[in-house]
Design a protein around this nucleic acid. Structure first.
Length: 1058
RNA sequence: GGGCCCGUAGCUUAGCCUGGUGGAGCGCACGGCUGAUAACCGUGAGGUCCUGCGUUCGAAUCGCAGCGGGCCCA
């Protein structure tokens, strides 16, 4: 049977109870199991890093996923969705280093790689467990017991398999390149791991002395003085004009400088020269023979072995000097130019960011610390033209925030540039939500992509499965653990992590021994293989054949460069196609001011705090409804409170009929909607239609992943249509005590609508939906599915759809609002009945609507009758006031005009208007007995309201409220006032709803007393008074006695409990 | 510096694709209701639709330029 429920929505209690229920009933597993015959849907979860607690962004991400999957499941999709965990990589190494107090790789080496790896593993597993619990509290249904984890050997094999594919397809390459390097982590990092932020660096102009020319210098500019020891060339633009000019100082000293002509003034300003004289102009290409001397040759001997020259390059811009310092060991462009021109790739800097022996005098110094020393040396050798600082965007390591440097080192690359065209084709084959996520954003990113540096000189990651012969240099790429064991001649099991796998050697054909190259993969490569790793490929084939590729994935827009990209790249290598068919790109969570949440700004909001305060369903409803998925979400606590209030109303809606239904033993299994068909009122049909329309709208929204629209539609229906309207309309019906069909009809309709709405909210507010479902449906129907999440999504029932009725109800609601407005103008409270509400409909449709919903309007306006005039006609009781027009009367009647005006104002407008309608003049009698003829242009008309009435506009047309009181109406008004106050006192006494009482009421005003006496029985019945004394000067007593002022009439009321 | 997205009332937003007097919710003020009651309803005030220029009879809507915010990149 349907049960009564708690007065207040208590999220914590409900969520606890439902969680327990889901667990006890094995609800998740059964729900998936039940859809086994449905159409398959393969979802791949983008794995969060196991580095700590979940944050608002990851919460939103999982909530979106869960809502969509629940919706799909209810639509009979058989879903595969293992949650994933990204458990390798620098993010975790850096955290573990932090807890151990490590500062560099040396600390790790002395701690022992094996110990370090175990710590990383421990850390990742611990966080995985904590984060799992947090996701579960959000109500997210995924296969938590069997997630995919990147640290498992089987997962590692999935990555190895991919890299072997790359090798076989000649897409894997090893070579020396200039890469982003973190001197703290002592590893290469990918472009995608570089984070840009402002930083202040030196800004220096340096003079490179031209060989064989006295006192002549090329001027370059740099923000990295530490790269000067690695300089091998200067680049100029072939098409720019350059000048050789004499720069003269105040003291008369002179130098001959070379720079772009346009930038001469800048160079002069920087060097504080006072005058100049151009000696010669030329194009960049004319400068290529120029040779120059290193400014630090004395300190860095290797510099003296290099022939420094000027080269041409298109990347040179008209900034600073137009001559660019080239150090191929320390810059991407520099490196490329170096390769092209076969320049020496000088890189006198070690992995820890300190100069090597090659740097001569600077050996051992850290490059950042070396900046001021080099500046000092340049100054000493008179090669420094100017010195300053500049604040610019500079790359930092995404994990430890150390400023990156570029180092030319040996690295492994995936040759993305070779498969780029096919990748772009695949982008077009994928469905993107919104469309521009793929067509604009992702496409632009892929178009600009470079080869992907996938090697890292670290410990905690998937080891790169390449074994290299120490003797002959031959490389061997291993695809699986079995292959490795076979080739190495191993029998027992091995773990594929470092350092264990490093110990495995493979005999080489040449008689030598192959050892693994020491690098591990870029952690982005881990998640890149998730779509097949989660299907246990390459270990098994059947699941892969059955499910791959993914039907759907969804992640934040930062994943354009991340997971959307890495997956596409790896999958192109492995299978030559995209691993996903459709992608929803969602936004970021920002603080209320639109700034990103970060620890340093101190504006981070924990989703767990929100759940503790408001519950998971509230957080879910909030993040889903407050913005379109792809827009950023400005987190706003006030809005959470609003959503919380809305859910409380939904709870009240749900709760409202339960006591009555319980009292009446209403059993929806026995009384079907069909059986009360004939008793349905218009409003019943209306809410049934509305429910269908909402299902339709929600379906439409969900088909484009417009979760915000779906949730808004549903909530609006619950609040606006159900709570604010339908329930108000049916309240009196639920109070009738007899078993009349009218009440039953209301129950049945309400029940039907509740069943629908319970299912509608279930993907979005799964806990609340379950709580409602168990009481409303499972309690009365033992054959119903065990959980609401096993139910089918409501299907639109066209038989209930009645768009015309929905439109009519809107009109009727507008009329009621207008009447309410009119009452306010007339000063009559709703409690006091009015004799008539008059509606002057402006269209046939409006008239029909009002006619059809006459009884609704009558009830809600508390009117004794509803009068509808003809379409377009005014209410015939309106008066017509004549407004004379002095500007027309004056010229005709001159000094008599005043008399005419006052006479016109006095006559009945209706008479005058009628006369004008018949002929063009009216004989007006003046006060002195004479008559004049006035013409239609001399008078305007204004409608006037009868005494005691007021009007307001509605969608249907003008609405008039006749608030004039008859003694019957007045009696009822006072009676209602008395009833309401007695009810108030019953409430105060905390009486049970049907508890009888004894009531006494003293009214001093004789006239009012007489009026009230006429309705004494009604009052007694409404307040359940067994004994009711009413009179003037009587004794008032009881358990509660109160004095009241009712519209300036003093009353004393008492209630005595039985 | 580039790509994409966002900018509408104090706050959160609809409308923008397809041009025609900007609509909600919250908050505020006033009023109402009182067997959902720590709930609910009505009315009102509140808008340079980020700014400027352009297209057009007409621009929140289309175009261009700029400003602010976000993500990504250089």
């Amino acid at each position: 049977m349907i049960k009564e429920i708690t007065a207040k929505y208590n999220a914590e209690q409900i969520e606890k109870k439902v969680t327990q229920f889901w667990e006890d009933s094995d609800a998740y597993r059964k729900t998936r199991e039940q859809r086994k015959t449905g159409k398959k849907l393969f979802f791949v979860d983008g794995p969060p890093y196991t580095t700590g607690n979940i944050h608002l962004g990851t919460a939103w991400n999982k909530i979106i996923k869960d809502s969509i999957l629940r919706y799909y499941s209810m639509n009979n999709r058989y879903i595969l969705e293992r949650p994933g965990w990204d458990m390798h990589g620098l993010p975790i190494e850096v955290k573990v280093e932090g807890t151990l107090g490590f500062k560099s790789k040396k600390d790790i080496e002395s701690f022992g790689v094996e110990n370090f790896i175990e710590k990383c593993k421990e850390f990742a597993i611990m966080n995985k467990q904590a984060m799992t619990a947090q996701f579960q509290r959000l109500g997210v249904w995924m296969h938590w017991e069997d997630p995919y984890v990147t640290l498992k050997d089987s997962y590692i094999e999935a990555a190895w398999w991919a890299i072997k594919q790359a090798s076989e397809k000649k897409l894997l390459e090893v070579g020396k390149r200039s890469v982003n390097w973190c001197p703290r982590c002592e590893t290469a990092i990918a472009d995608s791991e570089v984070e840009y932020s402002d930083r202040t660096d030196p800004s220096i102009y340096v003079k490179f002395k031209v060989k064989g020319e006295e006192n002549t210098f090329i001027v370059i500019w740099t923000t990295t003085p530490w790269t000067i020891p690695a300089n091998v060339a200067v680049a100029v633009h072939p098409a720019y004009e350059y000048s050789k000019f004499k720069a003269i100082r105040q003291d008369g000293s002179e130098e001959i400088l070379i720079a772009a002509t346009e930038l001469i003034r800048n160079v002069l300003k920087q060097g504080r020269y006072s005058d100049f004289e151009v000696l010669e102009t030329m194009f960049g290409e004319d400068l290529t023979n120029l040779e120059y001397e290193s400014p630090v040759g004395d300190l860095v001997p290797v510099q003296n072995e290099i022939k420094h020259r000027v080269y041409l390059a298109d990347f040179v811009t008209v900034e600073n000097t137009g001559c660019v310092h080239i150090a191929p060991g320390h810059g991407m462009d520099d490196f490329n130019l170096g390769v092209k021109q076969k320049l020496p790739i000088l890189c006198p800097v070690g992995p820890d960011g300190s100069y090597t022996e090659e740097a001569g005098e600077y050996e051992g110094k850290n490059v950042r610390e070396a900046n001021p020393i080099i500046i000092k040396d340049l100054k000493a050798s008179k090669r420094l033209l100017s010195e300053g600082t500049v604040t610019h965007r500079y790359g930092h390591c995404w994990r430890c925030k150390t400023p990156i440097i570029y180092l030319a080192t040996e690295q492994w690359f995936l040759k993305v540039t070779e498969i780029k065209d096919k990748m772009l084709e695949e982008i077009d084959a994928v469905d993107w939500y919104p469309d521009w996520a793929g067509s604009a954003r992702f496409r632009t990113w892929v178009e600009g992509a470079r080869d992907w540096c996938i090697s890292r000189q670290r410990y905690w990651g998937i080891p790169i499965p390449v074994w290299k012969c120490k003797k002959c240099g031959k490389l061997e790429v291993i695809g699986t653990k079995a292959e490795l064991k076979e080739k190495a001649g191993l029998s027992g099991d091995i773990e594929l992590h470092r350092p264990y796998v490093d110990k495995v050697t493979i005999p080489c054909e040449c008689g030598g021994e192959k050892k693994r190259v020491e690098d591990v993969f870029d952690v982005w490569f881990d998640s890149a293989v998730a779509s097949w790793a989660t299907l246990n490929f390459p270990q098994t084939q059947d699941q892969f054949d059955e499910w791959w590729p993914a039907d759907f994935i969804t992640e934040g827009h930062d994943q354009t460069r991340g997971w959307f990209y890495s997956q596409l790249g790896a999958s192109m290598v492995g299978f030559g196609r995209a691993p996903y068919k459709s992608v929803l790109m969602h936004g970021f969570t920002l603080d209320s001011g639109g700034k990103k949440m970060s620890k340093s700004l101190g504006n981070v909001i924990s989703p767990m705090d929100i759940i503790d305060r408001f519950g998971a369903d509230t957080l879910r409803a909030y993040v889903l409804s407050s913005s379109a998925p792809w827009d950023d979400l400005k987190f706003n606590l006030e809005e959470i409170e609003n959503v919380s209030r809305s859910i409380n109303i939904l709870w009240n809606v749900f709760r409202f009929p339960l006591p009555y239904m319980a009292l009446d033993n209403f059993d929806p299994m026995k009384v079907s909607l069909d059986s009360v068909k004939d008793a349905l009122r218009e409003e019943d049909k209306w809410i049934l239609s509305r429910a269908q329309s909402v299902v339709k709208a929600a379906d439409e929204a969900m088909s484009g992943y417009l979760l915000h629209k779906a949730v808004r539609e549903i909530m609006e229906f619950a609040l606006d249509d159900l709570s604010r309207w339908y329930i108000q309309l049916i309240r009196p019906r639920t109070w009738t005590e007899a078993d009349d069909p009218d009440k039953l009809a209301a129950y049945c309709v309400l029940y039907e609508v509740y069943v629908t709405i319970t299912k509608l909210i279930s993907p979005f507010m799964p806990y609340l939906a379950e709580e409602m479902y168990q009481n409303l449906i499972k309690n009365v129907d033992p054959n119903a599915p065990e959980t609401v999440h096993m139910c089918d999504w409501p299907r639109v029932n066209d038989a209930y759809l009645d768009p015309e009725l929905e439109a009519s109800m809107n009109t009727a609601r507008s009329v009621v609002e207008a009447a309410s407005n009119g009452r306010q103008k007339a000063g009559r409270k709703l409690r006091w009945p009015i004799s008539r509400t008059v509606i002057s409909p402006e269209s046939e449709d409006a008239a029909k609507a009002v006619e059809r919903l006459r009884s609704v309007i009558m009830d809600q306006t508390n009117s004794k009758s509803i009068v509808i005039t003809g379409v377009g006609e005014s209410w015939d009781e309106l008066g017509l006031e004549v407004i004379p027009d002095p500007s027309k009367i004056g010229p005709v009647f001159k000094k008599d005009a005043g008399k005419i005006i006052s006479a016109l104002q006095k006559i009945d407008g209706l008479v005058l208007k009628k006369a004008f309608a018949e002929k063009d003049g009216f004989e007006l009698s003046l006060a002195d007995g004479s008559t004049v003829t006035v013409t239609p242009d001399m008078a305007n008309f204004k409608e006037t309201l009868p005494e005691g009435t007021a009007s307001a506009e509605s969608d249907a047309g003008l609405v008039y409220v006749d608030a004039n009181l008859s003694s019957e109406l007045e009696a009822e008004g006072y009676a209602r006032e008395v009833i309401r106050r007695l009810q108030d006192m019953r409430k105060e006494l905390d009486l049970v709803v049907d508890e009888n009482v004894c009531v006494s009421v003293r009214i001093e005003d004789e006239r009012v007393l007489k009026l009230v006496e006429t309705l004494k029985d009604l009052i007694a019945e409404e307040v359940r008074a067994e004994a009711f004394t009413l009179g003037c000067g009587i004794e008032v007593s009881g358990d509660l006695v109160k004095d009241w002022d009712v519209e300036d009439i003093a009353m004393k009321m008492g209630i005595a409990k039985k």
